[in-house]
Nucleic acid binder design. Structure first.
Lengths: 145, 145
DNA sequence: TACAAATACTATTGATTTGGTAGTAATTGG
DNA sequence: CCAATTACTACCAAATCAATAGTATTTGTA
């Protein structure tokens, strides 16, 4: 069971945006360089983050991206859910009508519980927690330029 | 984020074996019928469960499968881990040497935490919990024959 | 001992998802 | 006007998923 690179890269992207939140819009190129991720790929990953209103973009010269709100107001659940989809581990959790066995199946509630637990765990942490950790390390990517 | 059908079918398979644990070996054909899953596919899924010593098989006429130990002694973590792989959500959790950024990356510990939480959640439940739920429902698959 | 019924093993396959790349269009500050 | 940036569309190779097919092996029993 692995997290997709979309979610992994996207989270790193958000951490970088969090580190520079007070400095205004950041070029994707810089983040790509610092995080050693393809800029083209990051530009794909950031689309859903924009759509979810976690990130705001500015086009044209001196454009860039900035968090739509302070890192402390963005939970990791917000981010992962946007990039990885919801935490309904099986289809029948959200759409019970897609399975004829829901009334007799005891596994459904397990998947429901597990998904809820994952969501809770991620909802209890904010982007700011990661940003602070990064700053505490003193050697996080953005500062090593 | 979805659980694979391997894990979903495999768990249902294990619940059925749990329901009949006291009755000796069960034919895969019967479980396939009751759970409405392809017998051929189930025969693939049960291989890792056997390898993990969660299930014991008997070949030949009047063969079948039976749980290797009582349902109360099999956690759901045992089952899901066997079918879905470990709970290391990113490669670097288990193999830090595969990423040059582990020393500066703050996302690694998050993935580690989340994986651990999932494992804990599943480790706190046993197959017997699901078997009991099924029996309580009075209408679980094995009883509806 | 032959046979039927079951598991064990090996290979294949179509569909989907993943993890990107490439190229062009649109926007905008200077 | 131009350079720099985001936005959009299309494409693609590789891996994974969800099976299916067929054959081999084992074994209780008639």
């Amino acid at each position: 069971m692995r997290m997709s690179t979309r979610a992994r890269y996207g989270l790193r992207l958000m951490v970088e945006l969090g580190l520079r939140y007070s400095e205004g819009p950041v070029f994707l190129r810089e983040i790509a360089k610092v995080e050693e991720i393809s800029e083209k790929y990051l530009s794909q990953i950031i689309i859903p983050l924009k759509a979810a209103r976690l990130v705001t973009s500015f086009r044209g010269a001196h454009g860039g991206y900035i968090l739509a709100r302070p890192p402390a107001q963005i939970t990791l659940k917000d981010i992962i859910e946007t990039l990885e989809g919801d935490f309904d581990l099986v289809e029948c959790v959200k759409n019970p009508e897609t399975c004829t066995r829901v009334s007799i199946c005891v596994t459904r509630s397990l998947w429901q519980d597990l998904g809820k637990k994952m969501a809770e765990t991620l909802d209890s942490k904010t982007l700011d927690d990661l940003v602070r950790q990064c700053k505490d390390k003193q050697n996080c990517a953005m500062y090593s330029i």
